[in-house]
Design a protein around this nucleic acid. Structure first.
Length: 417
RNA sequence: GUGAGUGUAGCGCAAUUUGGUUAGAGCUUCGGAUUGUGGUUCCGGCGGUUGAGGGUUCAAGUCCCUUCACUCACCCCA
């Protein structure tokens, strides 16, 4: 049996790799316009970074990480998300000392052991941006507007921005306590998974999609009543900021992120064109992440968006991916004696940065011209032409053709393309 | 981890309700003819252990079991 790609992974084939480049280039330009700088991080990290950063009781850490012991007996994990690594790097390299701020972005593969389905893979790709060192709600607005702008430039339609505040280390425990009391009183109405959530992470019950649980959650205490003054004010400023930029958004007090490090702002950008996995981007503020992984206090806010999912939505909505890559010139040999001359001319063109191709597999002239169909020009050389030292250059879009000396071919085509 | 559906040529599909000769066309590819040197048309060739393994049967692409993969949903998230 031939070996196949592991479950949940996929190959980005030539037919779509140029679309990926378009998405990444668009993101890259937007990042630059927003003053974010690119950072490259390892794909694997010490397991502890995620167990302490993302949170011991999260689904990601409990059952979704690719963790293994390396030959030096270190516990290593393929990164399941980007934020913890960025924060680790910022601490380790002092990117955020003495009130300086760091605006960083990167893209690359992330790994989670899940059952694959539409828009969900075991190796998936994210574009990630983090703004570190700023407590101010303007930073939250900057991050949210950045993600929206990337999608706007890509031409995505019908997106929904949903925001919430999940409180901070001061007010969340109080809210948690209230929730605990409430859900404890409605224990018999909750589903099994929610019962386990009860003592581990009661906030997550709010997120449960089961009708019974959601009904119970409807009557649960409102998080906004529990927010401390600082969190409340922060949240108000974020909302004001979004309105100032004319963004429409929805509030969802049930929006709870699956990663423990989030504080205050949490948000998601949803698309109706994705099936069940409807989030194209998600993020928020994480003011306690740095201390959780052993650093000094560095506030932060950021987002990640799934490239695979952006791709799905763009295909669904027939968005433009820019220009399809195309070879300028096909150099066709009329007969076998001319194949060498064809390759020589092809190389001359390439040296002049004109994309060119010729047959390297011994195809007939007819077959060569078929391949030439996707190019702008065809150069046709036969052994007779070599003797005469000339070549026919045909413009494949209008059918016009000229005979010129081979030595002038590069210059002529350079003019045309 | 749970559930449902699917698996036949490189691709998308067919194979007569209820198992029955040598599993078929189309597109692609390759070759030939024709077209002024590609695109059109015609002819021909290559291409399959029916995902894999086992079972039932005189007979299995078709029925049963196991396994793998894909798809979608739960869960969770981007």
């Amino acid at each position: 049996m031939a070996i196949t790609a592991p479950r949940g992974t996929r190959d980005i084939l030539p037919g779509e790799s140029w679309k990926w480049n378009y998405i990444i280039n668009t993101a890259s330009e937007t990042m630059k316009d927003f003053g974010f700088r690119e950072i490259h991080l390892p794909i694997f990290e010490h397991t502890e970074l995620f167990s302490r950063g993302v949170g011991e009781t999260t689904d990601i850490v409990e059952k979704e990480m690719y963790t293994f012991i390396d030959r030096g007996e270190r516990s290593i994990t393929l990164r399941p998300e980007a934020t913890a690594g960025v924060m680790r790097s910022a601490i380790e390299n002092n990117l955020c000392v003495q009130n300086s701020i760091a605006k960083l972005w990167n893209w690359g593969p992330m790994f989670r052991y899940e059952r694959p389905q539409k828009g969900r893979y075991r190796q998936f790709y994210q574009i990630d941006a983090e703004c570190l060192g700023v407590q101010n709600p303007f930073a939250d607005v900057e991050i949210i507007s950045l993600s929206i702008e990337i999608f706007r430039r890509l031409g995505l339609k019908n997106l929904e921005v949903v925001i919430n505040s999940v409180g901070c280390e001061k007010c969340r425990p109080i809210y948690r306590e209230k929730l605990l009391n409430y859900f404890d009183a409605h224990k018999n109405e909750l589903c099994e998974t929610c019962l386990t959530r009860l003592d581990r992470n009661p906030l997550r019950i709010l997120d449960c999609k089961k009708e019974a649980c959601s009904k119970v959650a409807d009557g649960a205490p409102d998080i906004y009543d529990s927010l401390c003054d600082e969190c409340r004010e922060h949240f108000e400023e974020v909302k004001k900021g979004l309105e100032r930029l004319n963004f429409t958004y929805k509030l969802n007090k049930r929006l709870v992120r699956g990663l423990d490090y989030y504080t205050k702002t949490a948000y998601e950008i949803l698309s109706g064109d994705l099936g069940a996995q409807n989030a194209v981007a998600g993020g928020g503020r994480y003011d306690n992440l740095s201390t959780a992984i052993g650093g000094n206090k560095i506030p932060g806010v950021g987002f990640a968006c799934g490239i695979d999912r952006i791709m799905l939505v763009m295909e669904q909505q027939n968005c433009s991916f820019g220009e399809v890559p195309k070879t300028d010139v096909y150099v066709a040999a009329l007969d076998n004696e001319a194949k060498g001359a064809a390759q020589s001319l092809t190389y001359e063109l390439r040296k002049n940065k004109i994309s060119a191709e010729c047959d390297i597999s011994g195809k007939s002239f007819k077959a060569q011209m078929k391949n030439a169909g996707s190019c702008n020009f065809a150069c046709i050389i036969g052994s007779e032409e070599i003797a005469k030292n000339s070549v026919s250059v045909k413009n494949l879009s209008d059918g016009t053709q000229v005979n010129i000396p081979i030595s002038e071919a590069v210059e002529y085509i350079n003019h045309q393309v």
